[in-house]
Design a protein around this nucleic acid. Sequence first.
RNA 1: GCGGAAGUGGCGGAACUGGCAGACGCGCAGGCCUCAGAAGCCUGUGGGGGAAACCUCGUGGGGGUUCAAAUCCCUCCUUCCGCACCA
Length: 832
Amino acid sequence: MDRYNSTDIEAKWQAKWDADRLYDAPDVDPRPKYYFLTMYPYPSGDLHIGHWYAMAPSDAAARFRRMQGYNVMFPIGFDAFGLPAENAAIQHGIHPYTWTMDNIARMRGQLRSMGAMWDWSREVVTCDPAYYVWNQWFFLKMFERGLAYRALAPVDWCPKDNTTLAREQVVGEERVCERCGTPVVKKNLEQWFLKITAYAEELLDFSGIDWPERIRTLQENWIGRSEGVEFAMDIAGHPGRRFRVFTTRPDTVYGMTFAVLAPEHPLVDEITTAAHWAAVDAYKFKAARESDIERLSTEKERDGVFTGAYAVNPMNQARVPIYVADYVLLTYGTGAIMGVPAHDTRDFGFARRYDLPIPVVIAPPGWNGQPLTAAYLGDGTMVNSGPFDGLPHADGWHRIAEAMAQRGVGERKVNYRLHDWLISRQRYWGTPIPIIYCETCGTVPVPYADLPVALPMDAAFAPTGESPLKQHAGFLHVRCPRCGGERAARETDTMDTFVDSSWYQYRYVSPQDAQAPFDSRRGHIWLPVDQYTGGVEHAVLHLMYTRFWTKVMRDLGLVEFDEPMRRLFNQGVILGEDGEKMSKSRGNVVNPDAYVQAMGADTVRLYLMFIGPWDGGGPWNSRGIEGASRFLNRVWNLVEETTEAGSRKPETVPWGARQSDARRPTPEARDFEHWKHKTIKKVTEDIGTFHFNTAIAALMEYVNYLYRVRDEQAGSAAWTEAMETLVLMLAPLTPHLAEELWERLGGRYSIHTHGWPAYDVAVAAAPAVTLVLQVDGKVRDRVAVASGISDDEARGLALGNEKVKQFVSGRQVTDVVVVSGRLVNVVTKHGG
RNA sequence: GCGGAAGUGGCGGAACUGGCAGACGCGCAGGCCUCAGAAGCCUGUGGGGGAAACCUCGUGGGGGUUCAAAUCCCUCCUUCCGCACCA
């Protein structure tokens, strides 16, 4: 008998699968299609255990679908643009292209060692001009439709990475760069934006896709829809000048005792009176200098300065002072608010500080006119609100909104927190934005015929805070494609790499296509993605952008669906053995390659899936993986020793003789079949729902059972069938081991083209059940009964049971609850 | 502050729709095998009591609903995650 040698087996089968192109997904095939996608990796140069944790279970699920009869496409590629390549280049003098391509070469090898069923013929590498030309193509399409625009705006700038960032890339309370953790600063810059806000409402609709609640909530919160009213206020002494405010509480408008403009609001300079110039200027200067951390701190007391100007409440013509305060943000709503201290916490604090009146306009239940000690935000009746007095505030909300609309001062409005997607990056290693600035013609898109705008290989990409391409004369200077004039220059910013990943799933359909981002005929076959897997860290980044991109593609007529991925599953994070996040500085990084060498890829795969629920992640345990290894050895030995050429007799097995027959009841053939079917049922259901850990537990139980009955069963036809079934069920999880054992069992190559084993529900159901007998909810006995037992029989059995009688004695039976085929609970009353 | 998720043995975790808590694995203990070790195999393993049969307590704390609660409701505590002056 051979021992299990993972190294030899894995090398052997990986080479054969590759040579046979076993996993290439044919475009034309009678089977139903299944597009299984896992997030493509960034080519950092090293495939770490986190990649394994994301990819190995995905592969198992994809293989499982394939065995179930689907034509599965499971593609792979590389997210090849981005800062690490450029930073490595700056530090080590290697060109980003070389660095990236070397890393990709290394990672291909590591990825192959996993034994996944990737279709390498569809590989996509995003830094290839044949790929990013379509980024530029999409950009031009969006530009034509007004979905890509350039604007001067206060944007987030990372001083370490020397580039602007999208709002989604600024994270945490400290507002740091998502990449490097450096606190960002605000800058006013002309930048390119994609108009994702045009799809805000649609992005809130998740109907028709099966995505985790968590992701939906995160996106909903990020989009931040709020309904309210936007209305205009006149400025006293400035005829015809007005500013608009947004409020979600129009019902409180009669309680307004001041108004506030954001310090950057364009009207501030115009309305500030001479007496207040100095104070306002100083305040604006301070607000501009303060970092976002200070400005947004909740600890900080809200402050502001009076402008000397007054606004007029359109509902009652009351004059209220206009302040400038930095708790009002230019980037949300209109950059101006009405101040209603009685019914808004922030306004309350502000009014307290500046001794502004705090009139109550929504009376809390039982309120008798006493001053408030805090803003009242709950339900109430309207008071001090002119013709609206006495209304419940919810009714007043609508009545005032209508009144404003009738008078032409305001209208209902929906506001979103979501901002347009800033895609300009002042870095080298990315897709050039295909725009030319001409002194005569202005902003001119590069003609489609001139695409791609190729990234020059000889740029000096040291980080200066300016786009490296600006220093590249050959790239920068260009004739205007419209007027032919020479006084024109290219846009030198490159695109955010999240542009690349927004549509890469489409490119896999026809990665070599030179006519279109993807071939529409093949797109009809494969799209959309049926199952997507990846980390939750992309909830409001990639996973929102790609939904946006798909909706744009739909509006461009490229696809006919609204959502890129039907189902999404987020796996958890694998932690170091100390339960902490893996990091080099902590020294708790697990190297998968070492474990692959020592125990085999199949063992690593199995252990990662067994560790716990896939969406939970959890700490790596170097002892735990030995359990997985032990199990695979047990499987190997079981199959090898009991089936080899059909010649082995059970008695020649060393430990068979040692087992005590007395404690082991001879199993019936029926029981043997039952075990097989119930295991298939469990494993089928669990792999289908990504519950790999319990699927593997069921397989372990089955193997334990098979060891128990091997002496009686080995050698029979049923036994051989059980071995085959076991190996088939392992095929998605441990593909090499399964292929090898399949061959040794005499199965036809390849097991991975074999169908998934079927089960019979009736056989899977237990032939005998344990009936639990309770008295007053406490278990007093368990009896084995036939599974079809009637409730009456069960009741009789319980009442006649000795243990039950013993606990019932001296009490009066008041009720007997029967749960069919499971449990009888005899309920008694004390006394008597 | 707002929103979300979660608290089960020494550890990772199981438990269908409310119906035997702790499957499976790790670890640990005892045993077999061995000159010895490794590996492998067998048995045991939530706490307390008991020689044992068995009894009893037990799913973060407290309360409730129910014949029956890890599961449902209320409340409190803790942890993790996200957002955070969003008008």
